[in-house]
Design a binder for these strands. Structure first.
Lengths: 156, 156
DNA sequence: ATGAGTGCAAAGTGTTTGCAACTAT
DNA sequence: ATAGTTGCAAACACTTTGCACTCAT
């Protein structure tokens, strides 16, 4: 999830939009740019914020609608994290990856895309369930918080 | 997740509450009873509904607070499912299990508890991440919806 | 020109909280 | 008696929607 050339992504998005009879607009440009600048995963609210720095007039609702449109285009991916805000990020050419969120500090960490492949095979075989692992973040404790917990637990 | 003897669970809950200086109350009794009657996973709203059938005077907020208290007691488990409502269920003596939700029909399916053990080991080794697999439902398509999708996709 | 897309405000979920009243202990 | 709990209503976080207007095509 390193940052990408905004212009290249913008061109791609424009092309895909036009091929569907949809339009490239200010809000969409701003959302793409915001996502391309940051690496990592942003909540919708963080996208709203970042977009505000690019074009202050863009309304929160338009950010949501843009994120939805871009998802339909296969340009943006969203991941549900445990309790709260959905996380969004550009799908970069290096391919999709999985996510886990630390329940303590909230950090979202990237995981190798193939991590759940054996699980997916087992689920398909045993239950017929088709796993879509990219769609939900796993939960647990990141290395730092796990270490802190181990340190704090034994004695105060 | 088969249904349990309400009375046995109520006694257990009362004991654990008292051991912490907390109290057994009407709302908590109703929540435990509601969860013990159903097997499966209920959203908070469904618990509110079921509790209403037992004791109509119990307020929605009390249901949330009771669920939280019961979670602290290790009697109730909650699972975050993709987008929406958190799912709650009693932790039965047969042990915890994992969950997956169908993104199409919303059904929550139970999965073997050890399904992600190899993944957990790999995460611990490679990233130091301590997986808490019970806390989040995996996402995908259940067997029925996958079959329907396969049928509908090729031709109309 | 024309319909896709926007801004706005308002509604919609799902959940939490401050507080006075209540009740299990 | 007295602290843990409740009911209520209001606030909260996140997201969606109806509508008149705007603008990319």
């Amino acid at each position: 999830v390193s940052d990408q050339q905004p212009q290249a992504v913008l061109d791609l998005v424009a092309a895909r939009l036009h091929s569907r009879g949809e339009r490239m607009t200010g809000p969409r440009r701003a959302v793409v740019t915001a996502l391309a600048r940051q690496d990592g995963h942003l909540s919708a609210e963080q996208v709203v914020e970042a977009v505000g720095r690019i074009d202050a007039g863009v309304h929160r609702a338009s950010v949501y609608r843009s994120l939805e449109a871009l998802s339909g285009l296969g340009v943006v991916q969203h991941v549900h994290v445990g309790h709260g805000a959905t996380a969004y990020h550009l799908i970069d050419q290096t391919g999709a990856h999985l996510h886990a969120q630390c329940r303590e500090c909230g950090a979202v960490v990237d995981l190798p895309a193939d991590l759940l492949d054996p699980v997916a095979r087992r689920l398909a075989r045993e239950d017929g369930f088709v796993l879509e692992a990219e769609h939900v973040a796993l939960s647990g404790l990141c290395a730092d918080c796990a270490a802190r917990a181990a340190r704090d637990r034994p004695e105060g």
